[in-house]
Computed example of a mutant assay.
Amino acid sequence: MPQRERSLAGVVRAAEEVLRKNRVAHVFVGAISVIVFGEPRTTRDVDVLARIPEEKAGRLVRDFRRRGFFASEFDLSAAIREHAHCSIEDRRGPLRIDLAPAADSTAERALRTSVGVRWKGITIPVSAPEHTVVMKLKFGSSQDLEDAAGILAGQWDQLDFAGMRAFAENQRVETSLERLIRRVKAARTVSVAAAPSAGTRSSAGRRRKRGRRRTIRGR
């Protein structure tokens, strides 16, 4: 009997199990961070940054293979040496894990500031929302900008704006960040203005209840 196609959460779970088992420091970035902190979206890639000693490449590959993934020790070792990403394909579906070594200060920052998040029944380290917003602005595609806006809107009250602005300046996207903040803030203002306040709803509710009681008594 053919195995059921693995879900996105199943691929994330497998990556987390393999990397944690082998004590490899790692963080989920990209679309997974957007899904966790922003808005639902589709993706075929599970992007992971990791500190991978080359001597662990063989064990990682064997553990991925045991879980039904196509993985190459040669490719992973080469990716570690060349600071490139290595694709690990799921044999049970169209998804893949893009595993990349933490090769620069930005990747190291993603690891250092990662946030442990409970998602789909598993706890995973995810790139902090502030970090993800700035990197999305740096990449700059239309999808990246919408992802950044979704995270800002979804996490507004919990964000470290000072830290995010400092990182944006470091990545030279401070102007783009301020523009996006103004856009999301304006949308929030319109949304709040359009929604009735709790007091108004409560008062209206009381009037409706009183009206119903009067109608009943009138009968």
Rank of each mutant, 00 (worst) to 15 (best):
residue 181 I to T: 08
residue 140 G to E: 06
residue 15 A to I: 11
residue 166 A to Q: 13
residue 86 C to N: 11
residue 16 E to G: 01
residue 196 P to K: 11
residue 164 M to R: 14
residue 139 F to M: 13
residue 170 N to S: 01
residue 125 P to C: 13
residue 170 N to E: 09
residue 54 E to Y: 09
residue 61 V to S: 02
residue 32 I to M: 06
residue 23 R to H: 15
residue 35 I to E: 04
residue 82 E to S: 10
residue 2 P to W: 09
residue 187 A to Y: 01
residue 91 R to E: 07
residue 213 R to N: 15
residue 213 R to W: 15
residue 184 V to N: 07
residue 91 R to F: 04
residue 163 G to L: 14
residue 65 R to S: 01
residue 201 R to Y: 07
residue 147 D to I: 03
residue 61 V to A: 03
residue 156 W to A: 08
residue 89 E to S: 07
residue 143 Q to F: 09
residue 42 T to S: 12
residue 169 E to D: 00
residue 62 R to D: 14
residue 161 F to L: 13
residue 194 A to C: 03
residue 154 G to N: 15
residue 141 S to Y: 04
residue 66 R to L: 13
residue 216 I to S: 10
residue 16 E to F: 00
residue 131 H to I: 02
residue 69 F to N: 01
residue 137 L to D: 08
residue 206 R to H: 04
residue 138 K to L: 14
residue 49 L to H: 10
residue 62 R to V: 15
residue 56 K to G: 06
residue 216 I to K: 14
residue 172 R to E: 10
residue 97 I to K: 02
residue 201 R to E: 13
residue 99 L to W: 11
residue 174 E to Q: 11
residue 86 C to S: 14
residue 143 Q to K: 15
residue 197 S to T: 15
residue 166 A to K: 14
residue 119 W to A: 10
residue 159 L to G: 05
residue 209 K to Q: 12
residue 78 A to T: 05
residue 71 A to V: 08
residue 68 G to N: 08
residue 20 R to K: 08
residue 71 A to R: 11
residue 106 T to M: 06
residue 78 A to P: 01
residue 133 V to N: 07
residue 98 D to V: 10
residue 160 D to Q: 11
residue 52 I to G: 05
residue 18 V to D: 03
residue 45 D to M: 04
residue 26 H to V: 12
residue 106 T to D: 12
residue 5 E to F: 05
residue 127 S to T: 11
residue 150 G to M: 11
residue 204 A to R: 12
residue 208 R to P: 01
residue 35 I to M: 13
residue 211 G to I: 02
residue 185 K to M: 10
residue 139 F to Y: 15
residue 56 K to I: 10
residue 27 V to E: 09
residue 99 L to P: 03
residue 206 R to A: 10
residue 21 K to D: 13
residue 195 A to P: 02
residue 62 R to L: 14
residue 148 A to E: 04
residue 33 S to T: 09
residue 112 R to A: 15
residue 93 G to L: 06
residue 79 A to D: 05
residue 144 D to T: 14
residue 192 V to I: 13
residue 101 P to L: 04
residue 101 P to N: 07
residue 85 H to Y: 13
residue 9 A to W: 05
residue 54 E to F: 11
residue 104 D to Y: 07
residue 22 N to F: 08
residue 91 R to H: 00
residue 154 G to S: 15
residue 146 E to C: 07
residue 86 C to R: 03
residue 12 V to A: 05
residue 121 G to R: 09
residue 136 K to N: 13
residue 188 R to N: 04
residue 22 N to P: 04
residue 70 F to N: 00
residue 112 R to V: 06
residue 159 L to R: 10
residue 215 T to K: 15
residue 93 G to Y: 07
residue 78 A to M: 12
residue 7 S to E: 08
residue 117 V to T: 09
residue 79 A to G: 06
residue 105 S to D: 12
residue 10 G to M: 03
residue 65 R to W: 03
residue 61 V to C: 03
residue 83 H to W: 02
residue 173 V to G: 00
residue 79 A to L: 06
residue 45 D to G: 04
residue 145 L to C: 08
residue 37 F to N: 06
residue 156 W to I: 10
residue 55 E to N: 12
residue 157 D to E: 15
residue 20 R to I: 02
residue 98 D to M: 03
residue 49 L to P: 00
residue 204 A to N: 08
residue 96 R to E: 08
residue 88 I to E: 03
residue 178 E to P: 05
residue 102 A to N: 07
residue 197 S to Y: 03
residue 101 P to K: 04
residue 13 R to V: 03
residue 72 S to G: 05
residue 35 I to Q: 05
